[in-house]
Amino acid sequence: MSLFDSRFYDLYIHPGSSYPIARIASEAQRFGYSGIAIINSAITDRDEIPQNFSIYRGIGISCKPSRLREEIKKHKGGIEILAVPGGDEELNRVAVETEGLDLLMQPAQFNNVLAKAASDNSVAIGFDLGSLIRLRGEARVRELIIMRVNLKHARKYNLSMILTSNAHSIYDIRSPREMAALAGLFGMTKEEAVNAMSETPLGLLKRKNPDYIQEGIEII
């Protein structure tokens, strides 16, 4: 059995408000995904979404570090995936120390203190492969260095990693095998990459289920 037989999810797709989501959904299904999460966009054309394909909603919170804690608390406990695009150290620090956050995307200046806090609050670290696709030259080198550092800390502190395409349109979606190849550029192994696209997102989505109580507890 091949590694790539699992179900794949992309949890950070970021189209503009007017972009047809059904088109993204059908394209993502053709590329081999079983579900996607749309950030900060209402799902209007739900009827046209292909069968056997799930679409989740996500909230991307970008604000000042001082307001971040309140914003996360406001949305905490809902069914939407809470994501914060990473920034400087101050913002990352507030994000990983607040309980209830699910995903911190591509944090720059990540360090062991932040990694430990993220591990305590079970915040997943997102790798934005879209930046590798869109950027060239010096800017891409910088992103690769950030990803290498994040990977090192995620391995050391057993953080959950999530690979996302951060797609703005259908032309930014890449199939799982290509995502794994891109992840290989900064040292991620194939197994880790597959886990970051199938098992970890599934676990995160399970946590968002209204029936879910706490880690290790379930109603029989």
């Binding site: 890449r174 290509e178 190849a181 891109l182």
Partner: peptide, 13 residues
């Protein structure tokens, strides 16, 4: 082949 895949994935416009 992995490197080729990665390079092909990096094409966007």
């Amino acid at each position: 082949t992995t490197e080729t895949r990665a390079a092909l994935a990096c094409m966007n416009n």
